[in-house]
C-alpha cells in the first residue's frame, strides 16, 4: 500500500514546522528523510504514524486518510522504545497479544522473531540488562511481529556506536528484502540514508519543505566507497549546506 502526503503542514502555535510537504512512498519502498536537526522530521513521522493530526493537508495510506495510530504503520523511536517492565519476549509478544493471539502462540512467535533479529537466548532479559543495540533489535522485532506494512523509523540507530550501527543497518536491509515492508526512516546520517534507501528526501531548515527527492539507483548491497555512493553523498551534503573535503579550500 502506498503512502501519500498531500500538502502536509504543521504548526505549533506561532511555530511553523512543516510547510506544504508532498511526499509519495510506494508499497514496499524504502524512503529516507534527511534534514537539519530541529527541522520537523520527527513530527513528520508522528503525523504519518497517526499520533498527531497535521494542521493542514492530509496523509493517505492505501488511499484512505490516516485517522489514528495502528499496527500497519508502526513507529520505532530512537531509544527507550521498550517497556522497562517487560522482558524482551513479553515486549515482542505484546503486539501479538493485543491482536488477540492466544498467549502461548504469541510467546512462541515472539521467540521466533527474537531469533530472527539475532537475540536468541535473550528472551528473558529486561531492556536495561541488554545493550542499546540489542534493545533496538528487540524494538524492531516488536513491530515486525505485528506484520507492520510501513515501518516508521525515527533515527532508530542514532544513539548507537558506529560499529553497532553498521550491523543493525545490514540487518534492517536483510529484513526489508525478506519481508517486503515499506519504510520511512528519519535520520541525520547521510551515509545510512544512502546505504538503505531507494529514495532520499532532503528537507530544508524549519519550516521544512522538500528540497530534493533523489533516487538512489545503486545496486544492493551498496559499498560506501563506490564512486556513485560518494557522489550522491556529496550531493546530499551540499543540499544540507555542508561542504565536503573535496570542496574545502586547501590551507597553504
Amino acid at each position: 500500500m502506498s503512502l501519500e502526503l498531500r500538502a502536509v503542514g504543521m504548526r505549533f502555535g506561532d511555530l511553523e514546522v512543516l510547510e506544504g510537504l508532498e511526499v509519495r512512498c510506494e508499497s514496499g519502498e524504502f524512503v529516507a528523510v534527511v534534514g537539519p536537526s530541529g527541522c520537523g522530521k520527527s513530527t513528520l513521522l508522528r503525523i504519518v504514524a497517526g499520533l498527531e493530526p497535521p494542521s493542514s493537508g492530509e496523509v493517505l495510506y492505501g488511499g484512505a486518510a490516516v485517522r489514528g495510530p495502528g499496527a500497519e504503520r508502526a513507529l520505532v523511536q530512537q531509544e527507550r522504545a521498550l517497556y522497562p517492565w517487560l522482558t524482551l519476549e513479553a515486549s515482542v509478544a505484546m503486539g501479538l497479544e493485543l491482536a488477540r493471539r492466544p498467549r502461548r502462540e504469541a510467546r512462541q512467535m515472539a521467540r521466533a522473531w527474537l531469533a530472527r533479529v539475532g537475540l536468541e537466548g535473550f528472551e528473558g532479559y529486561y531492556p536495561h540488562q541488554v545493550s542499546g543495540g540489542m534493545a533496538q533489535r528487540a524494538a524492531l522485532a516488536q513491530v515486525l511481529a505485528v506484520e507492520t506494512r510501513l515501518l516508521l523509523l525515527d533515527e532508530p540507530f542514532g544513539s548507537l556506536d558506529a560499529l553497532t550501527r553498521l550491523g543493525l543497518q545490514a540487518m534492517l536491509q536483510r529484513l526489508w528484502a525478506e519481508l517486503g515492508f515499506g519504510a520511512v526512516m528519519v535520520t541525520h546520517d547521510v551515509e545510512e540514508a544512502l546505504y538503505l534507501a531507494d529514495r532520499v528526501v532532503v528537507l530544508s531548515p524549519r519550516p521544512a519543505r522538500v528540497l530534493a527527492n533523489l533516487r538512489v539507483g545503486l545496486p544492493r548491497p551498496r559499498g560506501r566507497d563506490a564512486p556513485g555512493f560518494v557522489s550522491l553523498r556529496r550531493e546530499v551534503l551540499a543540499l544540507l549546506g555542508v561542504q565536503t573535503e573535496a570542496e574545502t579550500p586547501r590551507r597553504r
Binding site: A71, Q77, Y83, A99, V146
Partner: peptide, 8 residues
C-alpha cells in the same frame, strides 16, 4: 503511544 501503535 507505543501501546497505541501496537494496537491497544
Amino acid at each position: 503511544e507505543l501501546a497505541r501503535v501496537l494496537g491497544a
